[in-house]
Nucleic acid binder design. Structure first.
Length: 482
RNA sequence: GGCGGCAUAGCCAAGUGGUAAGGCAGUGGUCUGCAAAACCAUUAUACACCAGUUCGAAUCUGGUUGCCGCCUCCA
């Protein structure tokens, strides 16, 4: 089945046809490394991580480029604030980015280029634009002349005439048009700078993506992605630069993810409501964060609330609980039969959802269908599993894991998952597990001798300590409440 | 002002022409000494409102209302 993708350029879902059959080239705008990553970065990175995983699972040879913007005004400001070199700042936040991404199970892109390592390539593109008289230099700055590119505005649906009316006021008189943007910025004293035909300076923001995408993916490639806010001006400008320079269509499909709101408000500096990834991870399991972020369609806004995160955590518990149950029934399972699950019903439904513009929300629904069905089979046939039923349950487990792999969840063993969860809660709530074990044991003894009142009293005591019990056939298990 | 998006049960959310996935919460039941977990059943005469197209619309068209985003750095 073909993959269909909503293309911002056409504002329609289109059937995905890669430039080279069987291969996918994808460029996604990565972070400007001047601060820690927040939950909005996480969403964007995770959305494209899932898209990348899915392409690979479908058998495409994927080349995925995600850049680091490691020179720009914000980095320079931050470096000045802290009295550091911009290289040190960039390095610090790149390392932090990797720590965050590893923590939320984001796979590395194929190539992760940095702007400062591609200055030559950037200069070459600018020179080309100047040759074609689409760019002009003034006092060491170089600007792109938007009026020279006739399709300017085709991605964002803006027309220069419409935009100009309100914008004429504080126009930089040196620029030919208010919307002309910098390709090269001359260096002010103390700023990082590179030699160029226009003197010492540094690249403008947009040009690095044109230069690097061309270098690694070619002048035309399949997919370009990023947050919705990048549509204008960043991506609009990239198209203008690349198509003007190379006279070929730039990216064929444009994918943009929606924002994360915090309690219905946009994250903003004035509200001070940025949720940093590392802080979120102190409270929630990384896979719960992923499950939450993928539970809405990637183009819609999503509201970050404690309730929503807890619910995602409850859902994750439910899946792991099933996996644990299956392991208890069948013993530790291997992934040998992994490939064989390809034909199975839930995986197929999941793929159909993903094929339709990466509908992870629907896909997660399919995953829960499989969970419910496997539980149902276990309930119905407990203690009396025919080989056919066992086979069905094994297959469903395999399918669940396979879906999880695309979503980047269910990567732990159930034992690990629940143990980790337990020990974290123990730590957080300073619970004495030896004491609890003792009480649980005491209660089991009481139950054996049918001293129900005593057993219930101990259970009540534990409940007051936020300890919940499950009397399972194989013995009593205790958990910590939320 | 220009451009764009959204409005589905208590909450979150999928669904772009054929009669409402899934999750959380709730209620009843099975199981259990009682619970918990799990399962089963149940929970939107119906998809903001109005008009239209159609045999048929949450889904298409026009309008109304409300909310939101982008247009300055932004995932």
């Amino acid at each position: 089945m073909p993959i269909r993708i909503y293309n911002t350029l056409s504002k329609k879902k289109e059937i995905f046809e890669p430039k080279d059959p069987g291969k996918v080239s994808m460029y996604v705008c990565g972070p400007t490394v001047y601060d820690s990553c927040h939950i909005g970065h996480a969403r964007s990175v995770i959305v494209f991580d899932v898209i990348a995983r899915y392409f690979k699972a479908k058998g495409y040879a994927l080349t995925y480029v995600r850049n680091f913007t490691d020179v720009d005004d914000k980095i320079i400001n931050r470096a000045n604030e802290l009295g550091l070199d911009i290289k040190e700042i960039a390095e610090k936040y790149i390392q932090e980015f990797y720590e965050d991404m590893d923590a939320i199970n984001v796979e590395r892109a194929t190539i992760e280029p940095r702007a400062t390592e591609h200055i030559d390539a950037i200069i070459r593109v600018i020179e080309k634009l100047i040759e074609k008289k689409i760019a002009y230099s003034i006092d060491g700055d170089v600007y792109f002349a938007v009026e020279k590119f006739k399709n300017y505005g085709k991605l964002s649906g803006r027309r220069l005439e419409d935009m100009e009316a309100g914008a004429r006021v504080d126009i930089d008189k040196r620029k030919h048009n208010f919307f002309d943007f910098a390709l090269w910025k001359s260096a002010k004293p103390g700023e990082p700078a590179w030699d160029s035909p226009w003197g010492q300076g540094r690249p403008g923001w947009h040009i690095e993506c044109s230069a690097m995408s061309t270098q690694y993916l070619g002048e035309s490639f399949d997919i370009h992605g990023g947050g919705k806010d990048l549509i204008f001006p960043h991506h609009e400008n990239e198209i203008a630069q690349s198509e003007a320079a190379f006279e070929k269509p730039f990216a064929k499909y444009w994918i943009h993810n929606g924002f994360v709101n915090i309690n219905q408000e946009k994250m903003s500096k004035s509200l001070g409501n940025f949720m940093m990834i590392k802080d979120v991870l102190k409270l929630y399991h990384p896979e719960a964060v992923r499950l939450f972020l993928l539970s809405n369609h990637y183009r819609s806004p999503i509201d970050f609330t404690d309730k929503a995160l807890s619910e995602a955590g409850a859902g994750l518990d439910k899946i792991y609980a099933l996996l644990e149950r299956i392991e208890k029934t069948f013993g530790p399972t291997s992934d040998n039969d992994f490939e064989q699950a390809g034909n199975e019903k839930y995986w197929k439904k999941f793929c159909a959802a993903m094929d339709n513009d990466f509908n992870t929300a629907l896909g997660i629904g399919n995953l829960f269908d499989a969970v419910r069905n496997a539980n149902r089979l276990l309930d119905k046939h407990e203690g009396d599993l025919s080989s056919q039923t066992a086979e069905a349950i094994r297959s469903e487990r395999t399918q669940i894991i396979k879906m999880g792999k695309i979503l980047g969840i269910l990567l732990e063993s159930p034992l690990e998952y629940f143990d980790k969860k337990k020990s974290q809660s123990i730590e957080k709530q300073s619970i004495d597990s030896a004491e609890i074990e003792k009480m649980v044991h005491e209660r089991e003894e009481a139950r054996k001798s049918k001293q129900w009142a005593k057993a219930d009293q101990i259970r009540k005591q534990l409940a007051d300590m936020n300890i919940l019990l499950e009397d399972r056939p194989e013995g009593t298990v205790w958990k910590i409440g939320d």
